[in-house]
Simulated scan of single mutants.
Amino acid sequence: MISLSLALAGCSALGGSDSGGQASAGGGPERATLRVGMLNIVDTASFYLAQQRGFFQAEGLTVEPVTAQGGAASTPGLVGGSLDVAFGNYVSFFLAQSQGVGQFRLISDGYQADANTFLILARPDGVLRTPRDLAGRRVAVNTFRNIVELNARSALQTNGVDPNSVQFVEVPFPDMAAALATGRVDAAAMVEPFITSASRSLGAVPILDTASGPTADIPIAGYGTTEAFARENPRTVAAFQRAMARGQQAASDRRNVEQVLPTYIRIDQSTAALITIGTYPQSLDATRLQRVADLMQQFALTPGRFDVQPMLGPG
């Protein structure tokens, strides 16, 4: 297990300091500015807390968030060099690595699901009431073949619905409520804060919790870079890890998450107070992340067992 808390206490070998301040021994970060691919969702609250509270600045880093639709949209940016680091769901990272899109390294955990943080919602017209009603219907996911779709497939199968009977439709999270309201889709696989927003504005009702049963407490997403970037910029990566460790710790207090959400997502404080929040893990653990890879194998996203261990930590 690669503990982010350990990164706070002992990163001098990578050019850091014991106090969590800017690297001194061996020099500061090789790259002072980082372009970071981001999703503006609850999952990324720890990053924005780290930015707001000056944790990156204390490490000699300036971070420039670049909004993406999903992790699958960010991995080409990492490979092409338009992004230095990216927040992405683990399915997208593992799929890109297994398909030879690039060689990636996961450098910080980001978010883990909890009950009611991943829901399939429908209009309040009563046409869809149970998971079995989703058979043959159009269900929105933010991007194809990602953690949202994987969770949905697993939960559907657990509830006696053939996942292949569902037509998944790609719709960005911010557009899902409108897609539901206009009938473009019959249901939508949402995350927070869009779950709460759709419930308040549209009266959308939950049909299925997709982070339950085999996917309960499943790791969702983290921050990664390329193996080449990690190898060539070890002090930069270590500085990012230290700042994110402080951000993850700050996000463990719900009040901090509620405070920062309206600064990067278009929701008001009253909505922020109602959302369901998952967990911001303090470590990258291969055993936990392997659950995602094994589920990918079960649903034929990878041809065989994919070992996540080589992807953990700087090169």
Rank of each mutant, 00 (worst) to 15 (best):
L61V: 13
S5W: 14
M311V: 02
A152L: 09
G100E: 00
R145Y: 15
V141H: 06
F306P: 02
V79F: 07
R242W: 12
V148G: 10
A25S: 06
V185C: 06
Y111H: 01
A115V: 07
Q241D: 02
R53Q: 07
E258A: 04
G37P: 01
D294F: 01
F173N: 14
T279R: 08
R105N: 05
E192H: 09
R153K: 04
A86K: 13
P219G: 09
A178H: 02
D268T: 09
Y223C: 14
F168L: 15
A286G: 04
S212W: 01
T75N: 14
Y280G: 04
G304D: 14
A25P: 12
R184D: 01
Q52N: 06
F118D: 02
A152K: 05
F229E: 00
D307I: 13
V85A: 14
D43S: 11
P234I: 06
D209C: 15
D133I: 13
M38H: 10
R246V: 07
L208H: 05
A58L: 05
D209P: 07
V205A: 10
G28N: 09
E232V: 10
D294M: 07
C11I: 11
V161R: 00
L295M: 02
G77V: 04
D84K: 10
F55R: 03
S270G: 08
I120P: 01
Q167A: 07
R129N: 08
A45W: 03
Q269C: 12
F87E: 14
L274V: 08
G136K: 11
G10P: 07
A58V: 06
L121W: 08
F299H: 03
L150F: 04
V185G: 03
E258W: 01
A239D: 14
F299C: 15
G77E: 12
V260Y: 00
A177H: 04
T75W: 13
S17C: 11
P172I: 10
G27S: 11
R242K: 07
G278P: 03
A177L: 08
A73P: 09
I107E: 06
V171F: 03
R31N: 11
Y280N: 08
T75C: 05
T44Y: 01
P314D: 00
G224W: 04
M38G: 15
N40Q: 05
D217Q: 10
S17W: 04
D294I: 02
A152W: 05
Y280K: 06
G136T: 10
E227I: 00
Q269R: 09
A178L: 10
A152S: 15
P29G: 13
E227H: 07
G80P: 10
N142A: 12
A189Y: 03
